[in-house]
Simulated assay, not measured.
Amino acid sequence: MATKTWDAASERFIKDDLDHVEKLRRLRRLNGIARLMDTAIRIPGTGIRFGADSIFGLIPVVGDAGGALVGLYIVNEARRMGVPPNKLVQMLGNIAADGVVGSIPVAGDLFDLFFKSHRRNLDIILQHFDVRAEELRNAR
């Protein structure tokens, strides 16, 4: 909800931080989804992380489609937040690459470990809004 306050010094209305707080709340939710899908679990002794998308990908066809649906939710939320169409197309390309290559048996499962489409899409959104990932973790 956008609210405005009269600033007597500048003699004009200014936006309150409510928009910024709402944006951070949505970005935190998207960050949680991307983390769950791409980097929730770390293989001990390595720097390799994976998430539900890699596990779902083990189920032929249905698993990759489920991961793509979650990715489309992230893209739709970005659209609702005002991310421009050229970045939305880039995000859809990431989902398509993950879905198409991820559906190839064995090679697709290895691809899912290293190509983290949800995380890439979140980075595009954060870059657009000029928000650092640390802000999503720290300011609760």
Rank of each mutant, 00 (worst) to 15 (best):
A78R: 05
G108Y: 07
Q90P: 00
R35P: 00
R119V: 08
E11V: 01
R26D: 12
V106N: 03
M81K: 11
P105Y: 10
L88S: 08
S54W: 02
D98N: 08
V61K: 08
P44V: 13
M81F: 07
L88G: 07
N86R: 10
L58K: 12
D130M: 09
H118G: 06
I55P: 11
D112A: 09
A96E: 07
R42E: 04
I48F: 07
E135R: 08
F115K: 00
F115L: 01
A78Y: 08
D17M: 05
R28C: 10
D123Q: 08
S10A: 13
R140H: 05
N138H: 04
A107Y: 09
R80E: 14
G32K: 15
D98V: 03
A40W: 15
R140S: 07
E134R: 06
L30D: 00
R137I: 02
G66V: 12
D98M: 12
L27R: 01
L92W: 07
I59M: 14
K87A: 12
K23C: 14
V89H: 08
K23I: 14
L113R: 02
S117R: 01
D38N: 15
G51T: 00
M1V: 11
K116S: 06
L58D: 03
K116D: 08
S54G: 01
W6I: 01
L136F: 05
D64Q: 12
G67D: 09
R120Y: 11
L92M: 11
A8D: 14
A68C: 06
R132H: 08
L36M: 14
H118S: 07
V62P: 05
R12G: 03
L69H: 06
F111E: 01
F111A: 04
